[in-house]
Nucleic acid binder design. Sequence first.
DNA 1: AATGAAATGTCTAGAGC
DNA 2: GCTCTAGACATTTCATT
Lengths: 153, 153
Amino acid sequence: MDRINLSLLKALSENARMSYAELGKRVHLSAPAVAERIKKLEEKGVITGYRPNFNLEKMGIPITALVECQVYRTKEREFKSLIMTLDEVIECYNVTGPQAFVLKVGVTSMSSLDYLLERLIDLSDTNTKMIMSMPINENMPKNIEKVTEITDS
Amino acid sequence: MDRINLSLLKALSENARMSYAELGKRVHLSAPAVAERIKKLEEKGVITGYRPNFNLEKMGIPITALVECQVYRTKEREFKSLIMTLDEVIECYNVTGPQAFVLKVGVTSMSSLDYLLERLIDLSDTNTKMIMSMPINENMPKNIEKVTEITDS
DNA sequence: AATGAAATGTCTAGAGC
DNA sequence: GCTCTAGACATTTCATT
């Protein structure tokens, strides 16, 4: 990782649909040079994809929540299978500690949240925190250039 | 929101750098028609941006964690200011319940996590869960077409 | 709100350094 | 690894429906 690639990653973070030509202007490189660098970052698996960010409220999903699940000892496998099938689960983290799974879920109403939790509760104890806002939403630590190995470009 | 816009959002979710021409093929519309629809989705705030997904491990951030923070009664303001300045905080959720903030943090080592937690602990009690994997990582509920209002296209 | 056509801008592959 | 070039492709604008 050199300084130019880091600049490219930061520029893409601002707008992942930016053209190679525009990216090139930012890093003082030609479009083909940028295209090649980005292709390599994709091949190395540093960049794993590109996504739009949505406003879920405006898509009819007014309620999002974090659900911590303390899965019953013998039910781990079953729990994993279940959550893979649940439409409302947007993200799932497998974490250390007794609440081994943290789900981010999106629902249309409190009653559909209630119904979702009922399906989980056969296999786990749940603890639900309603999301009120997301004051920070980045995709990498802000000090990345200080902590990652920078080679000469 | 009509069926075509929903298809566009799903196609962009798979690859937000897809060209309007390619998107047009998927929904049987011309490139200018697609460009205009997407521009309107952006203007309405349904799409709020486009981002690359990174593999943080490959960027020198091998450790990510969720940190729940129970902020001391009188320290909310100060806590909020603090976290805005912390480089390691990638996401912050403001949620209901005593642990009013959930942070997603990325660090290079356990000692830097320890140092981060020390800075938080003056203003809150923390509970840290190390992230081991992320088996689900979507950007909208999978049943969106069943729960959002679909108008005729 | 969509189309087709024209002009402009961007990408990609290849040659050369 | 970079630049440049040229042909292919994509985007944007606009007249039309």
